[in-house]
C-alpha cells in the first residue's frame, strides 16, 4: 500500500492532516491517561483531590489477591480459556478445512450459521442460552461457561482459518498424495506445518477474546466459576464495599493477563484482524 498517490500539500490538505492528528492524538492521550489512572491508583497509598497519590505502595496487590481470591479467579479463567481454545481448535480447524476445500449442498447455510453468532450480540443470544443451560443443569458450572464461550469462539476460528486454508494450494496436497502420502502422513508432513501459523493466530485471537468475554460468562457463571473479568465487574458494581485501589489492583492484574497474550498474538497477526474476523486478510505486509 506504499504506492497510493502521495497527497498534494495544499491548505485544505494541511487542515485535514491537522484535524486527523488532533483527533487521534486526543483519543490516544486520553486512552493512555485512563489506563494510567488505574495503574497509578493501584500503586498509591491515598489519593484524594491531588494530581498524584500521597505515597506509593504495592500492598493493594497483596490485599486484592486475598480479598478477591485472585489465585482462584486466574485458575478458573485459564481453565475456561484453554478449554475454549482447545475445543474451538479441535472442532473449528477441521471444519474450516472442509469448508475451504469442498463445495457441498447446504454450505451456504453453514456459512450463515457461522456469521450469526458473530453478528448477534452475546447478550441477545446469551439470555436464551443461559436459560437452556440452567434448565439442563449446566448453568452455573464451569462446563456451562465453557460451552457458552464456544458459541462465538467456534465461528471465529472457522472464519479466520477459511481464507488462510484457501490460500494453501490444494495441488500441494495432491502432490503429497501422488508421491505416496496416505491421509495421516499428508496431515502430519504437509497440512499440519502449513496450517500451523494460521491456526496459531486464530487460536491466540480466540484466547484474547475469551479472556475479555464478559457477557456470556456473566450470564452463565455461578459464584464458583467466575472469570477475572466478571469478578472485576462485580467489584466495580459494588464499589464502596472494597477500597478503590484494591479494585484497581485487580484491574491491573486483568489488564496484564490480557495484554501478555495480546502481545504474543500480535507477533502473528495484524491488529486489524482483531475486528475484521479474517474477512479482509491483508496478504501483503511488506
Amino acid at each position: 500500500m506504499r504506492d497510493v498517490i502521495s497527497p498534494v500539500r495544499t491548505l485544505t490538505d494541511r487542515i485535514w492532516v491537522t484535524f486527523v492528528w488532533v483527533v487521534t492524538g486526543f483519543f490516544i492521550v486520553n486512552l493512555f491517561a485512563m489506563i494510567g489512572t488505574v495503574i497509578v491508583s493501584s500503586l498509591g497509598t491515598r489519593w484524594l483531590g491531588t494530581w498524584l497519590p500521597a505515597g506509593w505502595t504495592g500492598n493493594w496487590y497483596l490485599s486484592a489477591w486475598d480479598e478477591f481470591q485472585l489465585g482462584d479467579l486466574l485458575t478458573v479463567t485459564f481453565e475456561v480459556v484453554f478449554a475454549v481454545v482447545a475445543l474451538s481448535g479441535l472442532i473449528g480447524i477441521p471444519a474450516a478445512y472442509a469448508l475451504a476445500r469442498r463445495d457441498f449442498p447446504g454450505k451456504r447455510v453453514v456459512m450463515l450459521l457461522l456469521l450469526l453468532p458473530l453478528i448477534i450480540p452475546p447478550i441477545t443470544y446469551g439470555i436464551p442460552l443461559a436459560t437452556v443451560l440452567y434448565v439442563t443443569g449446566l448453568g452455573g458450572t464451569l462446563n456451562g461457561v465453557i460451552l457458552a464461550n464456544l458459541v462465538p469462539a467456534l465461528p471465529f476460528v472457522v472464519l479466520v482459518m477459511i481464507p488462510f486454508i484457501e490460500q494453501i494450494d490444494p495441488r500441494v496436497e495432491d502432490a503429497a498424495r501422488v508421491f505416496g502420502a496416505n491421509t495421516f502422513r499428508l496431515f502430519w508432513h504437509v497440512l499440519l506445518p502449513l496450517l500451523l501459523p494460521g491456526a496459531l493466530a486464530a487460536l491466540l485471537l480466540v484466547l484474547v477474546r475469551t479472556i475479555a468475554m464478559f457477557e456470556l460468562t456473566f450470564l452463565t457463571a455461578g459464584p464458583g466459576d467466575q472469570t477475572l473479568v466478571v469478578a472485576l465487574y462485580y467489584a466495580v458494581f459494588a464499589a464502596g464495599v472494597r477500597a478503590v485501589q484494591s479494585i484497581d489492583a485487580m484491574a491491573v492484574v486483568y489488564m496484564l493477563t490480557t495484554l501478555v497474550w495480546l502481545i504474543v498474538a500480535l507477533r502473528f497477526v495484524n491488529p486489524t484482524q482483531m475486528v475484521t474476523r479474517g474477512k479482509q486478510q491483508q496478504t501483503d505486509n511488506g
Binding site: I35, D248, T258
Partner: peptide, 23 residues
C-alpha cells in the same frame, strides 16, 4: 497506531468502565 487502537477493544468494556470512573 492500529496496535494502540486495538487496546481498548481487547481490554473490554468492564476495564474501560473502571478506568473511566477514575479518569
Amino acid at each position: 497506531l492500529t496496535t494502540i487502537l486495538v487496546l481498548p477493544i481487547t481490554l473490554g468494556t468492564v476495564l474501560v468502565a473502571e478506568g473511566m470512573l477514575n479518569y
